[in-house]
Design a protein around this nucleic acid. Structure first.
Lengths: 210, 210
DNA sequence: GTCTATATAGGGATAGAC
DNA sequence: GTCTATCCCTATATAGAC
């Protein structure tokens, strides 16, 4: 199901050397950009390769020169997300977590989300498709973001209250920033980051204030 | 596209008199239960009517006696959600909102979510399919939950800080409770409600504490 | 690199028997 | 109320020409 087209280039050419983040104007990048847009609007399942191709002005079959499958496009976008996730989440030790450390991590995460909002919205709106991916490709090295959160929040050595607080803080950050495009289009990014950070910090204070 | 099957009963028989909430053992209810399960696991688009029918032990075509279309099943589940939403959100005036009122509303919402978690998870994981529904059926009377939040949070007469706080609180409540089944399976519902309520209140305090 | 044409599969939905 | 059989459509993916 994830076979390569025999003549096409690798679905993730090594020549890119991890440069999946930059906006080169290669056809491959343009496909990914359109896919990001359509997957977010209509969902992964409802978006057809024909639609993507139409927007780019060529035929459906051409896409198969650049990607081995539709799923492969999603995987590539998923890798981009991980690229950014790594930055914010590196050095997390699920066994040694605290409210303070959680606050630091979320601070970094806020910046990452605001820097790449479209990508995060995509995956907020296509959780099922992503879960499917994860179920199929559970490489041990993959160190998935979601399973990392799972480990942290499930760690029963921490007080339940603190674990719930972390879940709330994560939800607050994700929720507010995902909604932000629709709800606060007028608010500057820096101000938004600052306000959400404050909120997150209030949630993660060791003692209930007042 | 939303035509009725000519021989079948109305897609929402008046004899039910709004009793869509109870678990009667009618075939119709059983279809809805399985659909709820599969739509949540696999997503609305990826779930076929054949799959639903298989689980119930009859054929795909039988479903069309009870529902006019696949979309009709989703609509019915959507109506259930609204049933509960109305309870928590009645009496909201988007033009006259405050942090205090938001806190009260979220308190009620927490109970509703915990009472019907599966339904809320369904729609958290199928936002795109729902959006599609809303785009097609924008009856004025529909008073949609999402558009209600939109109105509240977009109301530029309120301070940006407070609007962001509300978005955070909503995200915290939704996020924590949706994750709760996976992350806190051991925590009692009442305790969970209390903890999330506390967190929500911390977010919605008029002044930054400390 | 992109095309046309096609293979193959599965989906939603309907007709009509029982 | 459920069945079988069928229609029609669209999707992913492939083959091979240019």
């Amino acid at each position: 199901m994830v076979k390569m087209s025999p003549t096409g280039p690798d679905s993730r050419p090594e020549t890119d050397s991890g440069n999946v983040l930059a906006e080169e104007n290669t056809t491959r990048e343009r496909i990914l950009d359109i896919a990001l847009e359509l997957f977010t609007e209509q969902g992964y399942e409802k978006t057809s390769l024909r639609q993507i191709a139409e927007r780019l002005g060529f035929s459906k079959a051409a896409i198969y020169y650049h990607f081995a499958s539709k799923e492969d496009i999603l995987i590539e976008l998923h890798l981009r997300l991980h690229e950014f996730g790594r930055g914010a989440l590196s050095g997390i030790d699920p066994g040694d977590m605290s409210l303070e450390r959680a606050a630091e991590i979320l601070d970094r995460l806020i910046d990452q989300i605001l820097g790449h909002r479209a990508l995060f919205v995509l995956f907020e709106r296509n959780q099922v498709a992503l879960d499917e991916l994860h179920r199929q490709r559970h490489d041990a090295a993959h160190q998935d973001v979601e399973s990392l959160f799972q480990q942290v929040l499930s760690n029963s050595e921490m007080a339940v209250r603190d674990r719930v607080r972390m879940a709330c803080a994560l939800g607050a950050v994700m929720g507010a920033l995902v909604l932000s495009e629709k709800m606060f289009p007028d608010v500057a990014t820096a101000e938004l980051a600052s306000l959400v950070r404050d909120a997150s910090h209030d949630l993660l204070k060791p003692l209930a204030p007042l």
